[in-house]
């Protein structure tokens, strides 16, 4: 954070603190006063706010199937009495898991979390009805078509 809020200096990192609401009231007031007269900081505040909104709007995504299970399996405690080499190996393994986790999270955010693909909500009841209609062609009607008389709902 900058040492002061005089006109010649810019807010710098203070902008993030301001957006996050972490500044004391007096400093926040000073920052707002500076923003009112400094177009450079005002632009930066706008841009950082946009970036923050973009990052926070990324969807929650699932890790690869079995990721948690494998992580938990690999995270077994070091048995009491194990040698110093075993303990170091365990630490290295945990550090490796953490690194892999971080890398997976980064790849997930960059790859899967891209906002390019639009969300799709499959209309499951309609799809089931479409299936029953098509699958009943040339087949036993009671077996293939009658179940469509029951609306599909998964709200238990």
């Amino acid at each position: 954070m900058n040492s002061g809020f005089g006109a010649p200096a810019h807010l710098g990192d203070t902008i993030s603190a301001l957006i996050d609401g972490e500044l004391p009231a007096t400093q926040a007031a000073a920052a707002h006063a500076h923003l009112a007269v400094c177009p450079t900081c005002a632009r930066e505040l706008h841009a950082v706010s946009q970036a923050r909104t973009w990052v926070r709007s990324l969807p929650t995504v699932d890790p690869p199937f079995g990721f948690y299970e494998r992580m938990l399996l690999d995270h077994s405690p070091v048995p009491a009495g194990a040698g110093v080499f075993a303990q170091r190996a365990a630490l290295r393994r945990r550090a490796g898991i953490a690194a892999v986790g971080a890398a997976a999270a980064a790849v997930t955010v960059l790859g899967v979390g891209s906002p390019s693909a639009r969300p799709v909500n499959p209309a499951v009841p309609r799809l089931v009805e479409a299936h029953a209609a098509s699958a009943s062609v040339g087949a036993d009607l009671l077996s293939k078509l009658a179940p469509a008389g029951v609306p599909v709902s998964f709200n238990r």
Partner: peptide, 27 residues
């Protein structure tokens, strides 16, 4: 929709461009 059959059972595979949100799952 692509309709498949093994002679006894039928299977429809529906494809839609886009991504699936957990919140949009049917249950």
């Amino acid at each position: 929709q692509t309709l498949y059959s093994d002679g006894l059972y039928d299977l429809s595979l529906f494809e839609q461009r886009g991504r699936l949100l957990r919140s949009d799952l049917p249950g």
